[in-house]
Design a protein around this nucleic acid. Structure first.
Length: 325
DNA sequence: TCGAATGATTCTAG
DNA sequence: CTAGAATCATTCGA
């Protein structure tokens, strides 16, 4: 009966355990209901599942038919025999039940193999990692553009995610995955992403046009919450900051805890950078020392200061073995 | 064929 | 529930 439940759950078997065309229709309806899901892989999966279901039901029907035929055949034989010898109804009943039991065991095997087929199908199709496809170039461009133009706060809102998802023709959760991966990988190795960052920053700078000439404000008109996102300067707000901190320590790996004093150093650095870089934002420029104010636009969630910087003046000499494995 | 890149999943912490 | 981190599994380029 567990098999029945499983097949039912998979939409292979109908609600009636007897099977037959009524069950097939019900199963088809159930599968259709699930079909509201998106993605082409699912449709592929469903197609295969339908195939399995069809095979299952045709086989089931065949068995049922054979069972009935055989039963009537036996009944006829018994009837013929009843002319020569007396046959009790009990005997007939016993005969029929034996036949049914035999056939139901065959059905059991059918169900089992169907279950196996479904399981294999599931593992092959529903495991997304097996079916991973890289996003197309345009989608990656769009995502990167958003990421680097919101480098100070790369956490798109739900609406922004939906927007991006629509633009890239991917799902919202894929957008979330992408940003999750991007944030962590960017943070882990800013150096590697510098070129990319510059590229996208430059691109957005071009699209924003004439930033350098004015020299007073570089506010992005589209994003009120981000602390400046138009020019190539603001990219250095966060990106270069991490770079500089990281380069102080040479090649570093985030390992131990970061001291509290480091945070203030980072904040100071941030100020220096934002000031030497000129006007990043009126907020940062006007306030001389307010870590909170800066924190909101530079440190992402929780000011993830990379690596264990013991002393900012220390050169890239301290190569400690990391390998936390 | 190997290693880097990358999308997805899983686990943990807040 | 979400973000971060680690890891897995696949893809892609040299």
């Amino acid at each position: 009966m567990r098999l029945d439940n499983m097949l039912l759950a998979e939409g292979v078997a109908g609600p009636e355990k007897g099977g037959g065309s009524a069950a097939a229709a019900a199963a088809a309806a159930a599968a259709g209901g699930v079909g509201a899901d998106n993605s082409a892989e699912h449709s592929d999966y469903r197609a295969k599942l339908t195939q399995i279901r069809q095979i299952y039901h045709t086989e089931l029907e065949k068995y049922e038919q054979a069972c009935n035929e055989f039963t009537t055949h036996v009944m006829n034989l018994l009837r013929e025999q009843s002319r020569t010898r007396p046959i009790s109804p009990k005997e007939i009943e016993r005969m029929v039940s034996i036949i049914h039991r035999k056939f139901s065991s065959i059905q059991m095997q059918l169900k089992q193999s169907t279950c196996e087929a479904v399981m294999i199908l599931r593992s092959r199709f529903l495991d997304a990692r097996r079916k991973r496809r890289n996003f197309n170039k345009q989608a990656t461009e769009i995502l990167n553009e958003y990421f680097y133009s919101h480098l100070s706060n790369p956490y798109p809102s739900e609406e922004a995610k939906e927007e991006l998802a629509k633009k890239c023709s991917i799902t919202v959760s894929q957008v979330s995955n992408w940003f999750g991966n991007k944030r962590i990988r960017y943070k882990k190795n800013i150096g590697k992403f510098q070129e990319e960052a510059n590229m996208y920053a430059a691109r957005t700078a071009v699209s924003a046009t004439s930033v350098s000439a004015h020299g007073s404000q570089a506010n992005s008109p589209s994003t009120p919450n981000s602390a400046g996102s138009a020019g190539s300067f603001n990219m250095s707000n966060s990106g270069d900051l991490f770079m500089s901190v990281q380069s102080l320590n040479g090649d570093s790996y985030q390992g131990g805890q970061v001291g509290a004093n480091i945070q203030s150093q980072v904040d100071t650095l941030r100020h220096v950078i934002s000031q030497t870089g000129g006007y990043s934002d009126s907020l940062a420029a006007s306030q001389m020392y307010s870590p909170q104010g800066i924190n909101t636009n530079g440190g992402w969630q929780d000011a993830p200061t990379p690596s264990s910087v013991t002393s900012p003046t220390e050169g890239p000499g301290s190569v400690h073995s990391d390998t936390s494995n």
